[in-house]
Design a protein around this nucleic acid. Structure first.
Lengths: 335, 335
DNA sequence: AAATTGTTCGAAAACGTTTTATCATTTTTA
DNA sequence: TAAAAATGATAAAACGTTTTCGAACAATTT
């Protein structure tokens, strides 16, 4: 590999001069700067990121930490979208992104150790089990963290506006005439709590009763458990006229249960998804859902993380809230 | 940060001895090794990957290069699955994974330069525009490359068995009594060519005529263009009894076109998808499709890449072919 | 007792950078 | 014209490791 030294020899100047010329220092004459740049190009010089990192303590590398309860990993529909825009934003700002994990060669190490070891400057935590002690350790450490859809005290975070988006959805369903609105929610998490709050408080606000038998738990993005929950709701004596689902993928399960019960959407019963992934607009009936602005969430997360890395003395810690968008479609009917 | 030197001082031995103790060299007594390891733990020592990389020229970092024509990026259904298992396999072998791109701070650099710069030891190329000169440069360079579903001369590759899987699908459809089998294929690419070959050769083998009007082009994972193509097929005088689609996502478009034409699947017309993503099993009617073994593809790619990195003198370059699995479902009916 | 072998350790160079302190040289100012 | 300031360049140290080579000593063999 051609190094800065090779350039210095070829140009007949010192290594320091080459380094300065390459890095745009002011105390090098235009003439030598041009010479250095030219020979650098001629020799096909590429800097060595590791030598540089060693000296400057900067790697321009962001870590991604992501595990969900279903272990979908990167195939997780919602997160892969967030990650995609996070990646774009980071790269546009000259940062690299990598995944953090628990290995160092054959050894198992801490997530925090992995970050330290590799000089990761900040990490984005998403959908991860937040109570995992290693995640906690990381969040409490001196490496900047931004989390998505969860609040770690002392860390930046980007939240989708679950509470209000859910409220908006409930109000819309109400405006379509529904009074018996059930909610199949995902497993307990910050996001789930927010949505439940939005659901419950809006029902109250609208003067509707909050009925325990209308609130069932399912797994996110799991059509099977959602199918089971839907079946339960359909068997109720006083069955709901509309079912709000944990997410769009789960909707497949609900649709199946409803079809098997011989009912039609939206004539006999209405449903609404959540997330607004592309498939929601493709299935029949087109799903009424809340589109989460995954692009913005990812970009904001990257911006925030980079800002906090570059301003360690006064990082931004107030939550950034990203509003979703209600997509009214055919799956919620008038009643 | 606590360094090897801190340990050496605390232990009263030299840095070299500490390094050797830490790295399992034989010429250090059990006694000092234990002491070193103990104080390393006490001080919370974490090695510095960059210093190490600088010295050893090894980073244990694999690069991912991925862009698709639709610019879905990481949200691409097929690829996100492959990537997910690639990542697992790589990490289990002590390798990190990162994305390669064209930036170095504010500057735009070559993909190859990005690899060199960051000391990336090998890269996995998937779904990328293979004729991009920068990709070509990378594939021809001395950094080991494995590609997915495409063959770069001189590089390792993992291919799904498109030709034979397609053939199997055609034979199955034939066995269900279909004789007028159309194929809406994706845009030109290695994969597409393989599938077309499988389709054409099997038709011939079965003594069926290959009709140009039965072969239409669409975009992959694009329901809209596939809907258009389906409409065209439905308007044919002698319309097909079965339509093979580019992929499962496109199937949404085909289903829509068929429903709008007032036809029923599979009674009036049959369809088959490709890929076997989870949704194919959820939509109604359940899609007959070819499930690609994305888990195996990703793992094999990682294994191959790591092998080629660690055996630069005799890399494995024969294509690794991963068979798919025919999922017979309700969308292809008897005729 | 001398020679050989084995064991344990350390000094020092090296990897490719950045950056501080310093030194000439030239230009400006008084 | 002398002093002060600006300019352009360099030497050298440092970042945290790994690794070669040899030193010191002990144990073993002749």
């Amino acid at each position: 590999m051609v190094s800065i030294r090779d350039i210095s020899i070829k140009c007949g100047v010192s290594v320091s001069t080459v380094s300065k010329a390459l890095n745009g220092y002011k105390d090098v004459s235009e003439e030598t700067r041009r010479l250095v740049l030219k020979t650098a190009k001629e020799l096909g010089y590429v800097p060595n990121a590791h030598a540089r990192a060693l000296k400057t303590n900067r790697t321009f590398t962001l870590g991604i930490l992501f595990v969900d309860d279903q272990n979908n990993g990167l195939t997780h529909l919602y997160f892969s979208h967030v990650l995609n825009s996070f990646k774009s934003e980071a790269e546009e700002n000259g940062y690299n992104i990598t995944f953090i994990h628990k290995r160092w060669g054959k050894q198992i190490i801490t997530l925090l150790q992995n970050c330290k070891f590799r000089g990761i400057e900040g990490v984005c935590i998403a959908c991860v089990e937040p109570n995992d002690p290693e995640v906690q350790e990381l969040a409490k450490s001196d490496v900047p963290v931004v989390s998505i859809d969860y609040i770690f005290p002392g860390c930046g975070c980007v939240l989708s506006d679950n509470r209000n988006d859910m409220a908006e959805l409930v109000r819309y369903v109400y405006s379509m005439g529904h009074r018996k609105i059930a909610f199949i929610h995902g497993t307990d998490s910050y996001v789930t709590q927010q949505r439940i709050e939005g659901y419950v408080s809006t029902l109250r606000e609208l003067g509707l009763e909050v009925r325990q038998e209308y609130m069932l738990e399912s797994l996110y993005t799991n059509p099977y458990t959602t199918k089971k929950a839907t079946e339960k709701l359909l068997q109720l004596e006083d069955r709901p006229t509309c079912i709000l689902l944990p997410d769009d993928v789960s909707a497949f399960g609900a649709i199946e249960a409803i079809q098997e019960a011989g009912l039609k959407i939206p004539d006999d019963i209405s449903i609404a998804g959540y997330d607004g992934v592309i498939y929601s607009r493709l299935i029949s009936p087109r799903l009424t859902t809340v589109r989460q602005d995954t692009d913005k969430i990812g970009r904001e997360a990257a911006k925030l993380l980079i800002y906090n890395i570059e301003h360690p003395q006064n990082p931004k810690l107030e939550p950034i809230i990203v509003k979703g968008e209600l997509l009214t479609n055919q799956s919620v009917g008038l009643v």
